[in-house]
Write a protein that binds this DNA or RNA. Structure first.
Length: 268
DNA sequence: AAAGTACTCAACCGCAACGCC
DNA sequence: TGGCGTTGCGGTTGAGTACTT
């Protein structure tokens, strides 16, 4: 194991690729095929990291890639797969010929998350916001916050063993939820969905992240278990109250805009 | 027209898994 | 069995562009 020995970053070009560099990669691959990427820069005459070459090939130069817009069918499939397996972009991308995991991930982060949020659907749990608020609103007291859950996202959260390597293609017309007989640990998030870019910062509600760490740490049928099922915890604080108030206010606006979400029946 | 803000997406980073010796 | 190198993956960044004020 261990950290991969990457190129000497001070001596390799970084940033956007030029047409000339692309041509070198294409020429190399067409004559040698894809192989040891660490050798590619030297053999192809590129002043790039091998990893960067592999990424450029995988995400852009591969001849089987599509560069057109996502179709509504692809969009729907991404949403369903994300609901079933979470952010396992490589698995999702395998179901979309010509699309890369990076494509899917970017499309999700820039388009689909916002779309679901606007529809009143939580883009992580795929549950209606009103239902989640009902769950959280039913809590009479705030559970004690376990220390390991406080702070930034737990990057080490890994799929449960039963979900690993479920990479068989889906047969058409099957129930995706039944295809995936494993559970995906849902990552915590902030309700007011923003793209994860450097430009987003101040709009998250104070306390929200902590609250959703707790939400994410428990499971229900769809990966989240209501707080009311938790036995431990009892404290409350004003930041949580204001957070809940903000959520309730937001939910009220959503309900006004999308009354159909009240019956909990969704069609993406 | 200019400045500020939001959005998009290619590329990078770091970690873990894998395979070979 | 453990170390090393390579590959795969998901999260994040930031430059370029579009949009708004």
């Amino acid at each position: 194991m261990g950290k991969p020995p990457c190129c000497d970053k001070s001596n390799v070009k970084r940033g956007l690729w030029t047409a000339e560099e692309d041509a070198k990669i294409l020429a190399y691959v067409s004559s040698h095929g894809v192989g040891n990427w660490t050798l590619v820069p030297r053999k192809a005459g590129l002043n790039r990291c091998g990893k960067s070459c592999r990424l450029r090939w995988t995400n852009y130069l591969r001849p089987d890639l599509r560069h057109d817009s996502f179709t509504p069918q692809e969009e729907e499939l991404i949403i369903k797969l994300h609901q079933a397996i979470g952010s396992r972009w490589s698995v999702i991308a395998q179901q979309l010929p010509g699309r890369t995991d990076n494509d899917v991930k970017n499309y999700w982060n820039t388009k689909l998350r916002k779309k679901l949020s606007k529809m009143g659907i939580d883009p992580i749990t795929h549950k209606p916001l009103s239902q989640m608020l009902f769950d959280y609103g039913s809590i009479s007291s705030l559970p004690t916050i376990p220390k390991p859950l406080i702070g930034p996202f737990n990057k080490t959260s890994t799929p449960t063993p039963t979900m690993a390597k479920a990479q068989q293609p889906f047969s058409s017309g099957t129930n995706l939820g039944q295809q995936f007989q494993f559970q995906t640990p849902k990552k915590p998030h902030i309700f007011n969905e923003q793209p994860t870019t450097s430009s987003c910062s101040s709009s998250s509600i104070n306390g929200g992240e902590t609250v959703f760490h707790l939400a994410a740490s428990s499971k229900q049928s769809n990966g989240i278990e209501p707080f009311s099922q938790r036995s431990e915890g009892s404290s409350s604080d004003s930041s949580f109250d204001s957070f809940v108030d903000a959520l309730l206010e937001q939910d009220f606006e959503i309900k006004c805009s999308f009354p159909e979400i009240l019956d909990g029946c969704f069609d993406y």
